Amino acid sequence: MMRPLFYGLLGLLSLPAWAETQSMPLNMTQGVTGVSQQVYSLHMTIFYICVAIGIVVFGVMFWAIIHHRKSRGAVAASFHESTRVELLWTLIPFVILIVMAIPATKTLLAMEDTSQSDITIQITGSQWKWHYRYFGEDVEFYSNLATSQAQINNERQKRDNYLLEVDHPLVVPVGQKIRFLMTSQDVIHSWWVPAFAVKKDANPGFINEAWTKIDKPGIYRGQCAELCGKDHGFMPIVVIAKPQADFEEWLQVTKTAQREAKAEELRLLDMQMPMDELMAMGETVYNTRCAVCHQVNGQGLPGAFPALAGTGISVDPAKKLEHISIVVHGRNGTAMQAFGPQLSLKELASVITYERNAWGNNTGDMVQAAEVQAILKGEQL
């Protein structure tokens, strides 16, 4: 009985490598990086060890139950202790743990080695979006959920990448070692992309490091893996890995676009946008950035987010500058974020104008880019 069981275990532990790489929908993803392959191999090794232990334990148990049952006249042995048994059940688990610890330690050391990186990207989590900054490249942007509120509310058909699509994905090159510096500006988030075997907490006031080196181009998706608030499920991650030449082209195009956007903002300071243009853009910005808390109708959520319709600073003519300041700088101790770093001057002016004139507020106030710029620079409070 024991000899066939022993040979069966040897066969299980010596399964060919292709058996591990077959498609298993419920198994861990193999990923597209060297580290992710190491993690997958470690996972499968530990899995097979656990399977072997289970077969041995349950095999011995059922063998003992069958061959030492009462109907066969078996009589229970009477003993108190056995030095040999004590040594066996101490040494065998110790050896198993050592066998598991060696590859696990190698993998963990590889995951933490962020030295000699080619690119460094700072990742900052905030409720509920990601901010990416490329060190030494003067490129930075926010990445927001691109799934529309209509899809979330079942008013429109959901797309294939429902809740896993963003407006500005992170773009990286393949074949380069990429170092990530992760932090947060409010609560704890966690940047997780399974295909890279990267999952690292973003803690406010601290910087954590991780790295990856992607083997093949593609689009890879992940999510915030920390319960970071009411919209935790609406904080996806999308990474596009491009060949080096395509990445360099994207980087130059993005740099040019961001420089032109800054120049356009400076030109706006001398312009007066008409009410209809402010309201049209303001509604779009409000529905994508503000409605999730203050609701599309401006009624807010009692006890959590204040109403903007017919009450508060949004209808008080004397508090126009305070209204601008709160939208630009946020409000400490609340869920109100600082939108100054996230939106353009035009978008900020438009959304504040919209809030002061939508839902019957009708203050007639128009906010221009120059007023927002003054608040950003601290010239008016």
Results as ranks from 00 to 15, higher is better:
354 Y>G: 06
175 G>I: 05
136 G>D: 08
116 Q>P: 00
148 S>K: 08
178 I>S: 13
26 L>A: 09
174 V>R: 07
78 S>F: 07
315 V>I: 15
189 H>G: 15
108 L>M: 11
214 I>D: 09
305 F>D: 14
263 A>L: 07
376 L>M: 08
325 S>T: 13
75 V>N: 04
108 L>G: 05
104 A>P: 00
354 Y>I: 05
65 I>Y: 02
191 W>Y: 15
39 V>M: 04
62 F>T: 14
219 I>M: 01
16 P>R: 06
367 V>P: 04
191 W>Q: 11
27 N>W: 01
64 A>K: 07
56 V>I: 15
28 M>P: 02
353 T>Y: 04
94 F>I: 10
378 G>W: 03
147 T>S: 11
173 P>D: 14
121 I>P: 09
121 I>L: 09
258 Q>C: 02
82 S>V: 02
247 F>C: 07
346 K>H: 03
168 H>L: 14
260 E>Y: 02
221 R>C: 11
206 F>D: 11
112 E>D: 15
63 W>F: 14
29 T>S: 12
345 L>H: 01
269 L>I: 08
188 I>T: 14
344 S>Q: 06
366 M>L: 15
95 V>P: 00
315 V>G: 06
65 I>P: 00
60 V>D: 14
150 A>M: 08
337 Q>K: 14
347 E>A: 14
11 G>P: 10
85 V>C: 10
374 A>M: 04
139 V>G: 09
44 M>A: 07
283 E>Y: 00
25 P>D: 02
204 P>E: 10
105 T>L: 07
265 E>T: 03
178 I>R: 06
95 V>Y: 02
31 G>K: 03
371 E>P: 00
332 N>Y: 06
191 W>G: 13
147 T>Y: 01
297 N>C: 02
213 K>R: 13
333 G>L: 06
326 I>E: 11
